[in-house]
Design a protein around this nucleic acid. Structure first.
Length: 231
DNA sequence: CCCTGATTCGC
DNA sequence: GCGAATCAGG
């Protein structure tokens, strides 16, 4: 298989959409996960939460037992890089994993994104689109989490006709997935986004409150309404 | 073990 | 440029 423009485009969109290399690989077909990653890097679109890359260590002493690297003389500058904790709204995956076995724990790792003071009285804020946000003690009857995977299409009629495909995604349309990738009628919501968010108002309502279904959820995600997701 | 992405390097 | 092999963390 060769990297045609179409395949590259699909790879790019899925990669940026948060799909894993494996998902992309067997979605494209004919390529391995490694091929996808390799291509992604060559395209210059790396930079995504890597499980391995989280901590940045200048470790490069003896990685290759079989393929030693000849010379690497680089006196590392004694610069301790302290990454400021980046606060961002937690985005559910654009392309839900069809193979994910458990409905539990979709995207947000609480310790990942919650350097926020859990103090304060009732906090009820209103998002740009008008949807309400719950405060810490404000455990409103939790709407069932409803992770993106078991959604029934909200618009039964507009299935094939004007569905928003992966390639139709842009910064102005809602990226909420409807159905499962790979299925014939899989598409995205496609409504106009709630400004500043990757989803429309309706799905913002789901995306940003579904994360505290369990009673144990103490810290509600920071949710800076100023500017999540810069892109 | 499974998964993930990153990197290397022969082709 | 490509991707298997490998590494390394979760």
């Amino acid at each position: 298989m060769s990297w045609t423009d179409e395949r590259i485009e699909k790879l790019t969109k899925m990669w940026e959409g948060g799909a894993t290399a494996s998902q992309i690989a067997d979605e494209l077909g004919g390529v391995s996960r490694n091929a996808v990653i390799g291509k992604a890097h060559r395209l210059g679109l790396k930079a995504r939460p890597s499980p391995v890359k989280a901590n940045e260590k200048p470790v490069r002493p003896a990685p290759a037992p079989k393929k030693p690297k000849p010379v690497e003389a680089a006196p590392a500058a004694p610069e301790a890089k302290v990454e400021a904790p980046v606060v961002r709204a937690a985005p559910p995956p654009v392309a839900p994993a069809p193979r994910a076995p458990e409905p539990a724990a979709p995207p947000v790792a609480a310790e990942d994104v919650a350097p926020v003071a859990p103090k304060g009285p009732r906090v009820v804020s209103v998002g740009p689109g008008g949807f309400l946000r719950q405060g810490p003690g404000d455990q409103q009857q939790p709407i069932p989490p409803a992770p993106p995977r078991r959604l029934v299409p909200a618009k039964p009629s507009a299935e094939i006709a004007d569905k928003t495909s992966l390639l139709d995604l842009n910064d102005r349309v809602c990226r909420w997935p409807m159905g499962h990738p790979g299925e014939p009628d899989f598409h995205f919501c496609g409504d106009k986004v709630n400004p500043g968010f990757p989803y429309c108002v309706e799905h913002c309502g789901r995306a940003y409150q579904a994360q505290l279904p369990r009673g144990a959820r103490r810290p509600p995600p920071p949710l800076p309404f100023g500017g999540p997701r810069v892109r």
